[in-house]
């Protein structure tokens, strides 16, 4: 039996396990378009098996120590790019200082996928239906990138450009995500609507708000599965700032979504239905926020 004809197998490639960032960058520079970095591989391996991608070189970055670890760094929590999704659930520093990521993690795929998939990989792929890329927007996180031209930090607001397109240039790697430390006057909420647990969400949303008493001083609301990128709904945010969360305010924010979101045509979910689900979800989450979520 010819496996090539019948089975789900990747095209042949070479493999290089990098021990340091400079080795990974060097290997990529030499192989150019033919190279892909691999971390957890939970999206890349199926893409290779289905031959949606067929690089000639895989550069394994999972043994680079500098990409690991979670620690406080000034006003930020520095989360190493190789931090696995399961660690979002188990690491006390995440629960304390980036609780929105902790809340989103159970919705990311299935347990065995979460044991391998990494935060850096998820953000680098920028799947518009993924939870964590959207949460970097809600959190006002910064993405640290290293590449042939050095190191830089890009705000999440400037990172997601179009469908699977980010500020990452060819040959660049994400080293860490910097999340502003969660504060006592802040509240967060997360949820998504999906046909089955672990499936891609029909609509998902996460938010982080800063309060004085019951008045919202600042709020960032990010949706996913509603367009080509994760999307902040700035119109809805603007209706909420300076107010407390009563029914009228929540309705106003829901009304603003029509100007913020333009869900694309899809076979599965008509745009009007997605917009409706986004309103429902926003209402629920703002309700929870008002109750002190």
């Amino acid at each position: 039996m010819d496996l090539e004809e019948t089975a789900v197998k990747a095209r042949a490639f070479s493999y290089f396990r990098a021990a340091r960032i400079d080795q990974a960058l060097d290997a990529h520079a030499r192989a150019g378009d033919e190279a892909r970095f691999i971390a957890g591989g939970q999206s890349l391996v199926p893409a290779l098996s289905l031959r949606l991608q067929a690089p000639r070189l895989l550069i394994d970055i999972t043994h680079i120590d500098e990409l690991r670890g979670i620690r406080r760094d000034g006003g930020y929590l520095r989360i190493g790019a190789l931090t696995r999704h399961c660690e979002m659930l188990s690491e006390p520093l995440i629960a304390e200082f980036a609780p929105l990521l902790h809340a989103a993690a159970p919705f990311v795929a299935h347990p065995a996928i979460r044991n391998r998939g990494t935060l850096g990989g998820s953000v680098a792929l920028a799947d518009p239906a993924s939870e964590f890329p959207a949460m970097t927007l809600a959190l006002d996180a910064e993405i640290e990138i290293v590449g042939p031209s050095g190191r830089r930090r890009v705000k999440a607001d400037d990172f997601f450009i179009d469908l699977f397109e980010t500020a990452l240039q060819p040959g660049e790697l994400i080293t860490a995500i910097y999340v502003p430390l969660f504060k006592a006057d802040q509240r967060f909420a997360f949820d998504e609507l999906a046909r089955r647990r672990g499936d891609y969400a029909l609509v998902g949303c996460g938010m982080l708000a800063t309060f004085t008493g019951e008045r919202i001083d600042d709020i960032r609301i990010s949706f996913f599965s509603v367009g080509n990128t994760p999307i902040r709904v700035k119109g809805a945010e603007a209706t909420l700032i300076g107010s407390s969360l009563d029914a009228e305010r929540i309705a106003a924010a829901q009304g603003a979504l029509e100007g913020d979101l333009a869900p694309p045509e899809s076979d599965e979910v008509p745009p009007a239905m997605r917009l409706h689900l986004a309103r429902v979800l926003l209402g629920r989450l703002l309700g929870r926020l008002g109750e002190g979520a």
Binding site: A10, Y15, R17, I38, G41, Q42, V45, P46, S49, L58, D60, T62, C86, P111, A112, I113, N115, R116
Partner: peptide, 15 residues
């Protein structure tokens, strides 16, 4: 894999 459940179809043996 090192004590954690993983999909063995989503890991290349070399990894």
């Amino acid at each position: 894999l090192d004590g954690q459940a993983v999909h063995s179809c989503l890991v290349f043996a070399v990894q």
